[in-house]
Design a protein around this nucleic acid. Sequence first.
DNA 1: TCGAGAATATGATTGCCATCATAGAATGAG
DNA 2: CTCATTCTATGATGGCAATCATATTCTCGA
Lengths: 233, 233
Amino acid sequence: MPRLVDAPSNIQVLRASNLLNSLSEEDLLNLAAASSMYHANRGEIVWMRGSDVSFFGIVGVGFVKMLRSTASGQDVTTEVMGPGQIFGLLGAIEGCSCPQTAQAVCNTWLLKIDKQRFLDIYRENVVLKERLLSRTTGRLRTSYDMFARMSTGHVSQRISTILLMLADSYGVDTGTSIDLEIPLTRQDIAEMAGTTVETTIRTLSNWQKRGLISTQHKRISIIDLGEIQNLQH
Amino acid sequence: MPRLVDAPSNIQVLRASNLLNSLSEEDLLNLAAASSMYHANRGEIVWMRGSDVSFFGIVGVGFVKMLRSTASGQDVTTEVMGPGQIFGLLGAIEGCSCPQTAQAVCNTWLLKIDKQRFLDIYRENVVLKERLLSRTTGRLRTSYDMFARMSTGHVSQRISTILLMLADSYGVDTGTSIDLEIPLTRQDIAEMAGTTVETTIRTLSNWQKRGLISTQHKRISIIDLGEIQNLQH
DNA sequence: TCGAGAATATGATTGCCATCATAGAATGAG
DNA sequence: CTCATTCTATGATGGCAATCATATTCTCGA
């Protein structure tokens, strides 16, 4: 499979992380040396839930989704990580295996960072701890928010919530529309909204006919943001 | 309204918190002096979402639920806090208002702790920061887990998940059954499961007829744990 | 360029669950 | 003890969405 994009450098990816870029130059170089760039093909499982890996990851180029399998076998996506975002770090610090599965949404370059080397730096760095707490608090808040929205309401409300969340994180405002940078299939969106592919397709098709969004394969653009927001009520 | 239970002492409640009990005796007494015991009647709003309060709380006796109102006006309960548990702390540290509403599930004694006094202690205490991160990480994990279970599956699966979660936190194993210590109405459970009262009543009635649970007013006992767990599949 | 496979699309049908309506039971405050 | 109020219970009904089935379109790699 072709690697459409060149690999970024280790240090480049580390600097792009707004959690780690507070580290000293020395620590950054140290970490860069203890890391390895890895290319994951679309759909590739970066790691499986419960497996004990010696690294955590930062997305360099591309996107990784974190998902859980429910008892009934259905996959549910909890988060989508983009460039500069870290995944699997909390498991590394707590010393337990990551409870989620990480899967590449598209062809992705990611930096695998050695847990041990990071922990050596982490243990002595109070600022890093504070930042991490702040980041974790934010995620917790978002999670509760999504939880409240997802556990109630109709499918169209849930899907609109997902679109708006994605637009918030990975949307590019072109003036006439907000384009989502992530190549997501209807299946991907269905897994986030906790519904089926068919229903997702029907919903998005309907919105497209009404001119609220436009889609070209896996690329979605929000045209009528106000109306999408209204759908949440 | 009668106060069925006597108020615990400030220091007693502080010691019951497994986050704060690592503090020095001096700090604990200091905090105790900056706190005030408060009695909330059943249904009373301890604080409203978005309001800026100068304290966070620890449950002494009773239970407090954290809830959010969705755009459609429906309330969703995200967490239930029992004796020794802290709520509103993250908002205090981040310096923003708590994004959730706190409401007493039953007549409850809670300790209101002054934010500022706590922050003075917090800032200098690395161990406390680590513990808080650990606690927050755990909550995040639980939240994602609930999210995955709640955003998919049938109502009976969702309600069984809620019962099991409650049993895990507040269940007392009597040998023949697991009794939930929290007095919850069907409405309360419905708000946690993201469904309606009627459906919750039907589901629980059905389980009671089948001998899986027994209920006496607001008290629920799980009789056939295995079968309730099976319902999740 | 072409073909296999993935992704999107759409119809038909079933069934779960929200909603509305109403009634009975239990609780607790005075 | 009593009554208002809250809580539980249950029926009837309609609609939304899951499921199954089947095309059609689109992508990407050979």
